[in-house]
């Protein structure tokens, strides 16, 4: 699944359980599943070599790889990746802090819920990418609107899932923690937080996907650095190899953060999969 997909994926084990039990078959599964993508790549390369596919429209895979290696040696690829990564990290951190604070306020108190939840549910329906022109008007054309767009995109999916997680915590367990003599803070730490964690992690994966998507959109406009700049600059010179290479870097970054959250899920939710 693409990390940008707006649909939550069930936790890996559930998906595995729904699938029919795997029977041992001849040949490695990896080889079988890799066959068709490799075939497509070969077909692509052949189409370019025979002139069916013009390099002005789409460069062949080998040339994309060469261009990327070249950008790497010039240092531009690393620099661009660093700038883009920094935007996502700052924007994501801002959005995540806002989302978690608001979710805790809404999830833990009635007044907080009545105050925070209605506007959040209303704003959630606004397609945040459409706010970019406004953000540019408010914040100018430098880093600020880009980071704000990412932060906005992150806030809502993370808020919604975290609130749902907090509300879904078994009240009987909270009550039991009270009987055991745990303080308000102890109940929050030992019961509410771990109880809300599975839902929070779902929100985390969704919001990271939105963060990358927001970055890509934000970097299309007025960027003077970053992967988006690399791509638009290359496009103006007809360098489709660099354009596609930039897209590949975007997806690799998205896959990397998604894999990181999956790893956290596997470690932190070991109790559930046991």
């Amino acid at each position: 699944m693409s990390p940008y997909s707006p649909v939550a994926e069930p936790p890996p084990r559930v998906a595995a359980r729904l699938r029919r039990p795997r029977r041992p078959r001849r040949g490695s599964a990896l080889v079988r599943r890799a066959a068709s993508p490799v075939a497509l790549l070969v077909l692509w390369q052949l189409a370019s070599a025979t002139g069916v596919l013009s390099p002005d429209k789409l460069a062949p895979p080998a040339q994309i790889l060469r261009a990327m290696v070249e950008e790497w040696h010039k240092g531009t690829l690393q620099a661009a990746t660093g700038v883009s990564l920094q935007r996502v990290v700052i924007g994501f951190a801002l959005g995540a802090v806002v989302a978690v604070v608001l979710a805790v306020v809404a999830g833990l108190s009635r007044i907080g819920d009545d105050t925070v939840d209605p506007p959040m549910q209303m704003l959630r329906t606004v397609p945040h990418l459409g706010l970019l022109p406004l953000l540019v008007l408010w914040l100018g054309i430098d880093e600020a609107p880009k980071i704000a767009l990412i932060a906005l995109g992150v806030t809502f999916p993370l808020y919604v899932n975290t609130v749902a997680g907090i509300r879904g915590v078994d009240r009987k367990l909270v009550e039991t923690a009270g009987v055991l003599g745990l303080s308000w803070w102890g109940r929050l730490r030992h019961v509410v937080a771990p109880g809300a964690l599975p839902s929070f992690l779902v929100g985390l994966r969704l919001s990271l996907g939105v963060a990358w998507l927001s970055l890509i959109v934000a970097e299309q406009i007025n960027a003077t650095s970053g992967i988006g700049y690399l791509v638009t600059d290359a496009a103006s010179f007809g360098r489709t190899d660099v354009v596609v290479g930039g897209l590949i870097v975007y997806s690799l970054l998205g896959l990397a953060t998604d894999a990181a959250v999956r790893l956290i899920e596997r470690k932190a939710l070991a109790w559930r999969l046991a």
């Binding site: 367990l173 039991t176 055991l180 745990l182 030992h190 019961v191 964690l197 109790w271």
Partner: peptide
């Protein structure tokens, strides 16, 4: 109190549930 359902915290190992 011991309730009808054991009401253990599923994210804490057995020993930590008791130590809680």
């Amino acid at each position: 109190v011991a309730f009808q359902e054991p009401r253990l915290l599923p994210w804490k190992r057995v020993l930590d549930n008791v130590a809680l």
